[in-house]
Nucleic acid binder design. Structure first.
Length: 114
DNA sequence: GGTATGACTGTAT
DNA sequence: GATACAGCCATAC
């Protein structure tokens, strides 16, 4: 039971953090996992995103890996859909990679635990 | 219950 | 930048 609660708490934390990502910016799985209190659960963040997508108002397309690569583009139904959403917000994507990643990167720890 | 795989990360070479 | 290894957890077989 406790484990179930922990998992749910982590999932809720991830949801809230992703929802905080401002338009035209993006963050990474590791940053979210760290901000949620589980720095080693970066992989789980991806799994949670797969279940969340944007069906709960969670902009999963703003979440990429630490290199700024759209590793989860396939989870949006069609490849390229994720890049399309990002470009619609003003983020330049080339070859499944975010241009000027360090400029676009948004660190939740820098905003939540301010 | 063991093994393989995956929207990952960090360090080392 | 590319490749290799280790760490972490859930899911499928």
């Amino acid at each position: 039971m406790d484990k179930q609660l922990d998992r749910d708490a982590f999932r809720r934390a991830v949801y809230e953090i992703v929802r905080m990502v401002p338009r035209g910016r993006a963050t990474s799985y590791g940053a979210i996992a760290r901000a949620a209190g589980y720095p080693t659960l970066s992989r789980m963040v991806g799994r949670i995103m797969a279940g969340a997508a944007d069906g709960d108002g969670v902009p999963a397309h703003r979440v990429v890996n630490s290199s700024g690569v759209l590793s989860g583009r396939a989870a949006f139904g069609t490849p390229g859909r994720m890049a399309e959403l990002l470009e619609a917000e003003g983020i330049v994507v080339t070859n499944n990679r975010i241009a000027g990643w360090k400029e676009v990167f948004w660190d939740p720890l820098n905003e939540i635990n301010i």
